[in-house]
């Protein structure tokens, strides 16, 4: 079988790439996608530990994380549509009214 640490390293790498994407991307849609990537990385760690410890609670948690991600995607995309309608841009550099 594959050692659990392999899965955990992959999970850490994916989470890190999600953080990098979150910081470097300018399009608000892509930033939202990088949040989904980080959630996926966490799910992989959950499944790996669930398998290692022989306990199913980890997989139940993954199920709940996916449900919450679905709800978050619905509301978040609605907010993105609103931002685009009100400001005509998806670039986060131009959405800075809290700055002034």
């Amino acid at each position: 079988m594959v050692p659990t640490s392999y899965f955990l390293v992959l999970s850490a790498v994916l989470f890190g790439l999600g953080v990098i994407a979150f910081i470097f991307k300018r399009n608000i849609l892509t930033i939202f996608m990088s949040i989904e990537l980080m959630l996926n990385a966490v799910n992989l760690a959950f499944v790996s530990f669930s398998r290692l410890l022989g306990q199913l609670q980890g997989q139940v948690f993954v199920f709940f994380v996916i449900v919450v991600a679905a709800a978050e995607a619905a509301v978040g995309l609605a907010i993105i549509i609103l931002i685009h309608r009100n400001r005509g841009t998806l670039d986060v550099e131009n959405v800075d009214s809290l700055k002034d």
Binding site: P3, T4, S5
Partner: peptide
Amino acid sequence: GRATAHLGSA
């Protein structure tokens, strides 16, 4: 990877 290497496989 180092901290979890002792966990082995499932």
